[in-house]
Design a protein around this nucleic acid. Structure first.
Lengths: 210, 210
DNA sequence: GTCTATACACCGATAGAC
DNA sequence: GTCTATCGGTGTATAGAC
């Protein structure tokens, strides 16, 4: 058989792709898509710029591949949660995981809602499928958490899910990290508490006076 | 006297500067600093690109002028609050004002904490002075609100102030606006409630199970 | 496949006529 | 002061040698 003919080169090839995606993840979280250049990527991974295009046909596809890998990891984490955890607990833990992951420099952040990159992402089938899958899971968890009373019935599912997305790339993390007063774990806990404290909140204390 | 010699031209000049800053505000909120080009600004206000440089000597100074104007307006709003309002109420209302202002397309948003623009802003004396002034006011309000119990004692002033900054440019606003299920006022209220509900929260309901 | 070199486009800033 | 035209620099992507 010819099945074992070229496993070395292929293995090497895929290992290099993983190294490229690692570098892209770090650069995307530091500089964002627009400020990240292909020269940056090439320098970080130690190859020529032209070689990158043998792996990924454009900067957009390269970034999309990094984003897709993150979404895959997110799905894996969701699947790995203990069965007895409630929907609210799962939402809380997935945010905690994302924030911890960010502190280790592994989460690319989207600079703005518009922009050419966002449009390019929606043209990427692999990314789109994963994003829809993650989105569906989040909406299901939000609805269930709201039914069980873990999250206030005052907020629609949109508010819950979008808030979760927004906290995943909330700049408060970098602010607090740069301020230096809190340890990493304390930063994560403060953000998780302010987020879910707000989602649990009833409309009491409406700041009475006028 | 010569005092009235050239008021027309000067008036015209300053009116144009205001028009430029309006356009910059809108473009900064739509595309951010990096994606906004001087051609965009020139087209939006209806003048040649070269003419912009007679008003502002660089793209950084132009954006800094827009940011400074926003900070000035923020200080004015803070000064205009009724005397009987508590510190917590003032923090809530300044966030409400900012979000409403953003819905009208008037708040430039900072793409990332790093980047050349942030460094350039710190070199701008006018902006720096205003930013420090606003920051001082926020910290004073946060400390007072925490003393009076309006905000949970569990969070440090850093957490409160940075959370407020982060909500001011929170992408949840655009998400909910694009989703279209909520009216503008409802969007603002949802975001204010989730934010301050979280800051008021005690550490109850720690998702019990493990 | 990986390298060097380059084509092509875009952007910030300037020059010079009016 | 406003215009048109252009310079210098940078970034994506490609071509061609090895």
């Amino acid at each position: 058989m010819l099945a074992l003919k070229t496993p070395f080169k292929k293995q090497q090839f895929e290992a290099r792709e993983e190294a490229i995606l690692d570098a892209v993840n770090r650069l995307l979280s530091e500089k964002g898509f627009d400020l990240m250049t292909m020269d940056d990527v090439a320098d970080a991974v130690g190859v020529a710029k032209g070689s990158l295009y043998k792996h990924f046909s454009s900067k957009e596809r390269l970034a999309a591949a990094a984003m897709s890998r993150l979404l895959s990891q997110t799905l894996d984490v969701l699947d790995g949660f203990p069965e007895q955890w409630t929907a609210g607990r799962r939402l809380e833990e997935i945010l905690r995981w994302t924030l911890q992951h960010r502190l280790r420099g592994g989460v690319p952040h989207l600079p703005s809602t518009r922009g050419a990159f966002q449009r390019a992402l929606m043209m990427n089938i692999e990314y789109l499928a994963l994003a829809l899958k993650v989105n569906k899971r989040f909406y299901a968890l939000a609805a269930e958490a709201r039914r069980s009373g873990e999250i206030s019935a005052l907020f629609g599912d949109d508010v819950v899910v979008y808030t979760l997305y927004a906290r995943s790339c909330d700049p408060t993390l970098e602010f607090l990290q740069k301020a230096g007063a809190l340890k990493d774990d304390q930063i994560v806990e403060a953000m998780v508490q302010t987020t879910f404290g707000g989602l649990r909140a009833r409309l009491d204390q409406p700041s009475s006076s006028n």
